[in-house]
Design a protein around this nucleic acid. Sequence first.
DNA 1: ACAATAACTGAACAGATGTTCAGAAAAAAG
DNA 2: CTTTTTTCTGAACATCTGTTCAGTTATTGT
Lengths: 195, 195
Amino acid sequence: MARTQGSHSDITGPRIREAALRLFAQHGYAAVSMRQIAKEVGVQAGALYNYTPDKQSLLFSLMSSHMEELQAAWDSVPRAAYAMDRLRAFTGFHIRFHLERPDAVFIAYMELRNLTEENFTVIESLRRVYENGVEGILKEGVEQGVFSIPDTKIATLAVIAMLNGVNTWYRSEGRLSLDEVERVYWGMVQKAVSA
Amino acid sequence: MARTQGSHSDITGPRIREAALRLFAQHGYAAVSMRQIAKEVGVQAGALYNYTPDKQSLLFSLMSSHMEELQAAWDSVPRAAYAMDRLRAFTGFHIRFHLERPDAVFIAYMELRNLTEENFTVIESLRRVYENGVEGILKEGVEQGVFSIPDTKIATLAVIAMLNGVNTWYRSEGRLSLDEVERVYWGMVQKAVSA
DNA sequence: ACAATAACTGAACAGATGTTCAGAAAAAAG
DNA sequence: CTTTTTTCTGAACATCTGTTCAGTTATTGT
């Protein structure tokens, strides 16, 4: 056998990425073999190498795509005039964006140690850009006198860590709706940073 | 060769656990081989099986020890009368305890997916006991009228997630002292839950 | 209709994996 | 000193690892 019926690059490529994303999130990068990914796609392991130079590149590509989509999505959110409104917008955006892609989020946080040094540097700088955006809001709020924050860097990380926590427990069939979750978290974030 | 000079069970045992803890935290459970752990201890791979029935048990043992130490340590903290004081005590305790064992904390959160189903259940229930302790404080604070919290379960997870974030950035040589970190976080926690 | 190309197979590579176990050496017990 | 027990070695096991590549087939272009 060789090329199979209905085999197309523009179909197999995304399917490989989807399978890898799901498997990496479920079992961890190191625990997933190329053969497992291939099997999920319905293809032999060798075929994967038409779409990625190696396993490490596949992981890196998934992570950097996620980080770039995150940044692009946040950049496209209309920028409110007041820091308080911007922070509320961010809270809602961050929660929703992350709940829509639990696997990618999981990988982006858990598989950092499995990146090569140079790949790690790239992902880290993408993350820092995102964090700096949040810190900018907090700093502005402090200048405008609406926020009281002893250390904006720590507060940034604290807010993000708190919001990321949603992914560990939220289930769409659960007790609370997305709107309710957003409201509850916004209440805590707002109080935590307010003057 | 066989038994080597100065070989003792009560020395090798802990050394294996320490090496495994460090390596699992650094590279991940799946990425670390028994031979790597053995090499770190200065022993052949086969010798590890005098101390653990298998690799999975080693991971589980490390995680359950950590969770039990955590609970025991928190139980030994004097229980203040008012919820506000209890929450402050918890904030300080949690930050310090976790910063003292970054590797164990890392593993306890990241390697859950590498546990067998039954082992996972055990660890999860230990975690729930700890979380329930925190929720108890929040509930009491609400009853006493000092806290305003729409959902104590979410608030519990949010507070813990926020505090856990410290481990991702704190360095002892860094800009802030432990006392300062504790103060900053307590400020945010207090405001977030206060009425 | 044929030629060119893209997509894939299947086998092979050298090495690593968790785990077992007979035997050897050091330590402890008598 | 002799025996017993504890601790460890070193080899072996079957299987899995990421990756390469010649060859084969389906699709596309002419």
